[in-house]
């Protein structure tokens, strides 16, 4: 069974003194392929293809992550497996396409388990131009259904949360924490990890004080700012029809999977099809990505 083409949505945030991301994309577009190579988190990464769609005012990008470890072989049920014939320094490359929408500052990224992840994309753009101190951050968007169910709740019955109150982020640097002090932040030996569970009484009408609602809002805002600082927000809410629903307010990411994108003869998803898939998802999310 062919795997599905999955897309995740992210909001793009850049810190005050950073250049607009579009400026970086224009620099990348002008650079030749070899000059786009960067080593991010120890892996060679580059933007393989970049294109501005003037009609829809969006950017299409295709990232590759060069796999410098072993890879798969080719074969079939009737034919013995054999390796690929690579020439020179060629090796396997993992492709990850994305769409950037400058108007709303959103990015739709193809999910590739072995490809570049959003944190690598953040670093790639942040480090692309050496001379300027750019910092970009991608924040995941959440499932609209979960949002709606949470908004329509009658009250919260139970709330579970896990917080790491001192996780080092780019914000610490922006605020001016020195390198010497930054090394202590998030240190295992000094880490404080709080896991809290607040439950209402077992009676049918037992509910948590509305103050908890504000706690949820604060935690969600904190999670958007520092995703690693809040690792869990799970709420058991009572819906308008008196049903108890458990909502994971972090895990339910805005995701869409397409099953009709077929691999080509070379068993890769063609770039044009991946771009088309991303565009379809973007069209479907038009109301959400405002």
């Amino acid at each position: 069974m062919a795997s599905k083409f999955t897309v995740h949505a992210f909001g793009v945030k850049h810190y005050e003194d950073s250049q607009p991301l579009v400026d970086i994309l224009k620099v990348i577009e002008k650079d030749i392929l070899e000059r786009r190579n960067r080593s991010i988190k120890g892996a060679p990464v580059r933007v393989e293809h970049i294109e501005y769609d003037a009609a829809n005012k969006i950017w299409y990008l295709d990232f590759i992550k060069i796999r410098d470890t072993h890879g798969p072989a080719k074969g079939s049920k009737t034919k013995a497996v054999e390796g690929f014939n690579f020439v020179g320094d060629e090796t396997f490359c993992e492709e990850t396409a994305l769409i950037y929408i400058p108007r709303t500052n959103h990015m739709l990224i193809q999910y590739n388990h072995y490809g570049v992840k959003y944190s690598v994309i953040e670093d790639y753009f942040s480090q692309y131009v050496d001379a300027v101190n750019n910092i970009y951050e991608l924040t995941p968007k959440y499932d609209a259904d979960v949002e709606r169910q949470f908004e329509d709740r009658k009250f919260i019955k139970k709330l579970e949360m896990a917080i790491d109150p001192r996780h080092l982020t780019k914000e610490d640097r922006t605020k001016g924490t020195a390198v010497f002090d930054a090394m202590d932040i998030g240190d295992k030996s000094q880490a404080v990890h709080l896991a809290i569970s607040v439950t209402a009484s077992r009676t049918k009408k037992g509910q948590l004080h509305p103050y908890v609602d504000r706690t949820v809002e604060t935690l969600r805002r904190l999670h958007l700012l520092k995703p690693k600082a809040v690792s869990k927000i799970k709420a058991s809410v009572v819906s308008v029809d008196d049903k108890v629903i458990i909502l994971d307010l972090i895990a339910h990411r805005l995701t869409m999977s397409l099953g009709d994108i077929k691999p080509g003869k070379d068993k890769r998803w063609p770039r044009a099809d991946r771009y088309r898939g991303l565009f379809r998802v973007m069209t479907g999310w038009k109301k959400i990505l405002k």
């Binding site: 942040s126 080092l168 640097r173 390198v179 930054a182």
Partner: peptide
């Protein structure tokens, strides 16, 4: 890795 993720590697 934490320092690098937070953008401190440029400072070092």
């Amino acid at each position: 890795k934490r320092l690098s993720d937070a953008g401190y590697i440029k400072d070092i």
